[in-house]
Design a protein around this nucleic acid. Structure first.
Lengths: 336, 336
DNA sequence: TTGTATGCGTTATCAG
DNA sequence: CTGATAACGCATACAA
């Protein structure tokens, strides 16, 4: 690989001159700058950012850890992150825990060894001990979509209470009185918040909650199938289900129709996230939309601004979700 | 950040001793090794891989460039890449061209500046000039799923001719005689190969091909809608369509039913890739499956083995696709 | 405007 | 087994 020394030799100047020319330093003559750049081009020089990073104390890359890159929710965020990171010449180191939450701290260590300049975390659970350690370090990080209550860190999230209200009130407005809720993991803040709001709304409307009609599970289609099946089994079943994310909802959709409860006729269904699956023809899931791509962008913009300013300004950004009504919800009248 | 110097001072040995202890060199006493490791742990030391990479001439990261991370096809590959890369302590630098093919060479330059040890490319087009340049460098790279004919590079792909045959023969076996084809971009090798095989099979069975019933487009749902609409418009429409990927197929599915051609009753539909969308309830798309996750793994294993061996052995791996018959195909008899 | 010297944190070579 | 020293490629303070 060609280095500045090679260029220096070729042009007949010192390496430092080359360095300055290449980084457009003001204290250099136009002529040598041109010479240097031309030779650099000709030799196919690419600046070694490992070396540069070593002296500047920054690698020019951010770390991104997601819970499951095959879930469109996270790949949307990743796309947002990449968009702004690349625009500023930063690289993005991706780590996918693929559901194994215990890998997270390993990944964070990996990323810190690689000296990423900052971290974007989208898979925090409610009380991750390693986040406390991370907060003690000098590496800036930001939580996206998932909060961790045990640590005071910048975040960009969507108001899950509001989102869940939107969903449940929509069902109530349609006339539903028997509404089930299937959450994600109990140790994920957003999962809890959606559950809390669900219960609040029920209470506000004088609707009784049933133990059997609410439960935590996992943010997967398989979990949706499993819990959905239980919830729809005799003796009594809800006329509507609010699922804490779209993957769960898809699982419910599948199992409900298998069990002979067509949607929305026999069961109304609301998901959460509005991932690309939700708007597919034939699916047309009613769901709560989050600005995922946007969250990735905002988080990265914050991170890069912190990196340039050298000072760590707080960011507690709560975005608004909105309801997308499609074809999986209707009034319960039809079969009453 | 704590360095080996800090540890050296604390333990009372030289930095080189610390370095050796930390990398489990054989020429060091068990006692000092223990001491060093304990202090390192206590101080929260994390090896600076920028510095390490500088001297070892390797960054411990691979670059991955994909055409669209929100497409499950690519995120599956990415997951496979991450799985093996992380297992060997490598990082993964992700670049998502998000459809803008011209960004690719920029991304490759970015990744080379970051001194990634190797590249995994999944978005090559048929004749990318920058791949020729890349081939001249010392950076190993491998093409996944997409070939570039103008350069002799290692690759892992699925046999698209075979896959397309599977699809078209399935339709013919069902009794279809009027079969349309919607390809992806004309400059993507796999897109062409599927088209070629489609025409071959048609010819072998004595079926005439119609100009109007075949065309290139783009690997997106929007493109599927657009071309699908044209193809299904009067005066005559095919009884079956083979789409070069599942996203296109989904677009066709949508537009066909909008136009009053329920699937599979009035139109049989086959996709390609078997992305997660295809197996969704209500969708149940008949499609040609590729081992995506596996391709990511194989490519990364090859790359890492090349990196460890320092010698660049060839790899031309062609995997076999298989047909997954679901509910979007049936015999044309019903409406004839 | 340019060159020289120094250091970033590690590893490797060579003495001891 | 351990320590001093050089080197990786680049940026920068200081001299010239």
């Amino acid at each position: 690989m060609v280095t500045i020394k090679d260029i220096a030799r070729e042009v007949g100047v010192s390496p430092s001159t080359v360095s300055r020319a290449l980084s457009d330093s003001p204290l250099i003559s136009e002529k040598t700058r041109q010479n240097v750049k031309e030779v650099a081009q000709r030799l196919g020089y690419e600046r070694n950012e490992l070396a540069r990073g070593l002296v500047k104390g920054s690698s020019g890359a951010v770390g991104l850890v997601v819970a499951d890159i095959t879930n469109p929710f996270f790949s949307d965020i990743a796309q947002g992150v990449g968009e702004v990171a690349h625009r500023f010449g930063y690289g993005v180191m991706l780590c996918d825990t693929a559901g194994k939450a215990n890998r997270e701290s390993d990944y964070i260590r990996l990323l810190r060894r690689k000296r990423v300049d900052g971290l974007i975390l989208t898979s925090a659970t409610i009380n991750d001990p390693y986040l406390r350690d991370l907060a003690k370090t000098r590496t800036p990080f930001i939580l996206v979509s998932r909060l961790c209550r045990s640590v005071d860190a910048p975040y960009v999230v969507v108001d899950d209470r509001v989102g869940a209200r939107l969903a449940v009130e929509h069902l109530i407005n349609l006339g539903h009185q028997h509404i089930g809720f299937i959450g994600g993991p109990a140790d994920v803040q957003s999962s809890r918040d959606r559950m809390v709001a669900y219960r609040e709304v029920l209470q506000e409307h004088g609707l009784a909650e049933k133990e059997k009609w609410m439960g935590f599970s996992d943010f997967t289609q398989a979990a949706g199938r499993k819990v959905g099946r239980q919830m729809l089994s005799p003796p009594e079943r809800p006329s509507a289900i609010f699922a804490a994310n779209d993957m769960i909802a898809l699982g419910v959709l599948e199992v409900a129709e298998e069990m002979g409860f067509p949607i929305p006729d026999d069961l109304s269904l609301v998901g959460y996230n509005d991932i690309s699956y939700a708007s597919l023809p034939r699916i047309q899931l009613t769901t709560v939309a989050q600005p995922t791509f946007e969250m990735g962008k905002i988080a990265t913009e914050w991170l890069l601004s912190v990196l340039s300013k050298e000072e760590i300004l707080p960011l507690y950004r709560i975005l608004e979700p909105h309801l997308v009504v499609r074809s999986t919800t209707t009034c319960p009248c039809v079969d009453d």
